[in-house]
Amino acid sequence: MNDPSHPAHDHWVFGYGSLMWNPGFPFAERVEARLIGAHRALCVYSFHHRGTQQQPGLVLGLDLGGSCRGVAYRVAGADWHETHAYLTAREQISGVYRESARRIHLLDGSQREAAAVVYLVDRAHPQYAKGLDLEAQFRLVRAAHGKSGANRDYVLSTVGELKAMGIIDPGLGWIAHKLREGHE
């Protein structure tokens, strides 16, 4: 699955939310990519990065079914240990995400595929926010703030990156519009 033109010890990471606009680690290559079998969803209560226990926020997760366009980062083997430790500390605070290796399709015209580290939401975890309608999502996002900043900024930054990639997510777009307009 890895591209033979790159050393076998390089690793790929798939980003679908804040990793797209704030990876926080060194990478050798950044390519738009598609993951089949999971979709981007605002489905994780955030008690740390974008909310608190008292005022939870909502962040994105890769939920089962469908597909997701995002960004794949190729990390040089020499940087992998430190990058993986960083990602574990960032993504595995509460165990709501399950780290997995999944096949991704690189969308750079090369028809390459790669095995990438992805973070799938654990539907059995108490932070899984199942079935919230857009109004409920908006209310949570509008009010929450955590150690990494305002939940509002997280959603607006993600929607901005998606727009730059030519991706329209109607639900996130609706929430972003309401956040920008200051609607109640």
Rank of each mutant, 00 (worst) to 15 (best):
M1H: 07
M1V: 12
M1Y: 02
D3S: 12
P4M: 02
H6K: 09
P7F: 05
A8H: 11
W12G: 07
V13Y: 10
G15C: 05
G15N: 04
G15Y: 01
G17Y: 03
L19N: 12
L19Q: 09
W21V: 05
N22D: 14
P23I: 01
F25V: 10
A28Y: 09
E29G: 08
E29W: 05
R30W: 01
R30V: 14
E32L: 09
R34S: 12
L35T: 06
G37D: 08
A38L: 02
H39W: 01
H39P: 11
L42C: 10
F47T: 15
F47P: 00
H48I: 12
H49C: 09
R50S: 04
G51E: 02
T52N: 10
Q54M: 09
Q55L: 08
G57C: 08
G57F: 05
G61H: 04
G61M: 08
L64M: 08
G65V: 06
G66H: 05
C68L: 06
A72G: 15
Y73Q: 06
R74W: 11
R74Y: 11
R74E: 10
A78N: 12
D79N: 15
D79W: 07
D79G: 06
Y86K: 02
T88D: 13
T88R: 08
T88K: 09
A89M: 11
E91G: 08
I93H: 11
G95S: 03
Y97H: 05
Y97M: 01
R98V: 12
R98F: 05
A101K: 00
R102D: 09
R102S: 13
I104G: 10
H105N: 07
D108A: 12
G109I: 12
A114D: 10
A115S: 14
A116S: 13
V117M: 11
L120K: 04
L120T: 03
D122Y: 02
D122E: 13
D122M: 03
R123P: 14
A124E: 14
A124H: 13
H125F: 07
P126I: 07
P126F: 04
Y128C: 14
Y128A: 14
A129G: 10
K130W: 06
K130A: 15
L132M: 15
L132G: 09
D133E: 12
A136D: 13
Q137Y: 00
Q137V: 14
L140K: 14
V141G: 06
A143Q: 14
A144T: 06
H145N: 10
S148K: 02
G149H: 04
G149W: 04
A150I: 00
A150W: 01
R152Y: 04
D153P: 01
D153A: 13
T158I: 00
T158H: 01
T158P: 00
G160K: 02
L162R: 05
K163L: 05
A164P: 02
M165A: 15
M165Y: 02
D169W: 04
D169C: 07
P170A: 11
P170S: 13
G171S: 12
L172M: 15
L172H: 07
G173Q: 04
W174C: 11
I175D: 06
I175S: 07
H177G: 11
